[in-house]
Design a binder for these strands. Structure first.
Lengths: 139, 139
DNA sequence: GTATATGCAAACCGTTTGCATGGCT
DNA sequence: AGCCATGCAAACGGTTTGCATATAC
């Protein structure tokens, strides 16, 4: 955990008006410490914490990821019914999902062009358009 | 359960090379008996069975929906981490998801136009493109 | 007769919650 | 001091599974 990563984590928490507790700083640094977008599962992030030598309970990882989402710092992405993914990038953008290893990553959004959207039923408006491009290994 | 619905269910099972047991016929008739596409959850379909006066165990509903998917008769659609949806329409098409009541339905695919797709990572090909248009009530 | 499907209840697994403790401001 | 965050373990809900029974072919 570099000082810079910690600093980035701290700023990020501030942006969400969340108190910089030890656990939140640990998670935040792992998530945004290098300035890259990240796609994690609760379990995966928990493992990453343990690997880094720190310790945060799994329940707190869940609660904290939820708190990050509520604060608008992250976004929940649904690609696989059995697990939730959390994305540090919060704008509406397409994802690649590798079916072989369950990995999620950003798809270059410039490549995707949606020319038109179906007309929406009366009384409703579009909250978000989720695009998941499922990838399988070529054999 | 009309004779015609039963007949449709029977043909549908045949298409998937599945034995026409009482339970499968019941489910099949409810799913394709009127020729319309359907989007169901296991729980919802189970309720529909009970409402129709028949009886199939919930475990069998789950197992049978899975069997239908394996046979290529249905498709699993992931929109909400907490539940699985099953769709009788098996081609690649966009969905409307009403966030207020958790209802899933087909979006008119003619309305959606994807002009171009992001280039796919080396060694992978596109298995499917899932498009879920999340709808919220206008207030 | 043999393979396969069903039902039940128990196992399962990711996630959430209640409650007592500890830490931030 | 007061409020909010944390940890643990237990609860939870949707889904799957093991095994004995029943059914299609």
């Amino acid at each position: 955990m570099t000082p810079q990563a910690l600093e980035r984590g701290r700023n990020w928490l501030e942006k969400g008006a969340l108190r910089p507790t030890r656990q939140r700083l640990t998670l935040a640094s792992l998530l945004v410490g290098d300035g890259e977008n990240r796609h994690v599962t609760a379990e995966g992030l928990h493992d990453a914490v343990l690997d880094s030598g720190d310790r945060v309970s799994l329940a707190t990882v869940y609660n904290t990821l939820r708190a990050f989402c509520d604060a608008g710092l992250m976004q929940e992405v649904t690609v696989d019914g059995s697990r939730s993914y959390f994305d540090t990038r919060v704008d509406d953008h397409p994802h690649f999902y590798r079916e072989d290893d369950g990995t999620l990553c950003d798809a270059p959004s410039k490549g995707l062009e949606i020319a038109s959207l179906p007309s929406v039923p009366e009384g409703y408006e579009i909250a978000r358009v989720d695009v998941v491009i499922r990838l399988r290994k070529t054999r």
